[in-house]
Amino acid sequence: MPDPSAEVLLDLYRRMVRIRLFEEVGGRVAEDGRMPTVLHLYIGQEAVAAGVCANLRPDDQITSTHRGHGHFIAKGGQYRPMFSELFGRANGACKGKGGSMHISDIDLGILGANGIVGGGIPIAVGAAFSNKYRGSDAVSVSFFGDGATNEGSFHEAANMAALWKLPCVLVCENNFYGEWTPQHLHQAIEYIADRAAGYGMPGVVVDGMDAVAVWSATQEAVRRARAGEGPTLLECRTYRYFDHVGMKGLRIAYRSQEEVDSWKARDPIQALEARLVEAGALSAEEAAAFKAETLAEIDEAIAFAEASPFPDPAELLTDVYTEATS
């Protein structure tokens, strides 16, 4: 696999920074009580969303999880509809009807974050079936966590995807905790990628703290899928810096500060920034300027969202059904 170009590296870097800053600012705003919601923050796992989505076309589809902001941003979602949605406003990505756990934009191929662990996996497999059925070479990607690999939906969907050689990629973000339960207490295996053998598909273990590693592994998985060679299970080993939910979290003692610090020492954004600066592809000033621009865009989007109207109560009953039959 050739090394990615500086252009690819910069793209991965920008996607990750856009996710990180959204989550840092959004997480604080939510914690301040300005949003009617709690957030499942993606901070720490940015390399996975960025590395995977950098390989996708606009017509490729993804399904996401309750920890879905990173996937939404990496697949092309914009800050304004995101913040409006998180603030519950009428001009949100889902008109204020979905919120953080259901943020979606089907026009961008985002078939939804999902409040049900493992809920998106069969849907992604269905999208892959549909792509193949319609003669499209689009692929679908399902993001899910280590916890989801114990759900029946994962096993059923993985089996079908491999059986029919469907054009999809199953991306397990193993952050080592299903909510607060550590992996060794929820499954007997160490490598989730090993499960791929049981379905007859390749399973690949990837350093999920390295956006370039994720990008490379996904490039091959997407190539396979598009070529009709079937699905791949990518296990991206990564880490959630914050609690299962929220910044302050629920103050459940379930992991050590040493463990958290050891993962933060391998921060994917810092690592890629250092690599770019060393290669001369990015200066420290340019990095700072990009972050400042991004923060300004976030602040503007928050102001836009907070100034936007809430949905009218009459909206309660719209969008339950499609009215016209095609």
């Binding site: 078939l111 069969p122 992604a124 892959a128 059925y133 029946g152 969907a157």
Partner: peptide, 15 residues
């Protein structure tokens, strides 16, 4: 579960 999910994903994407 997989079968129903297949239907959901396929229905949402043009079939």
């Amino acid at each position: 579960a997989g079968l129903m999910g297949l239907g959901v994903g396929a229905a949402a994407t043009g079939t």
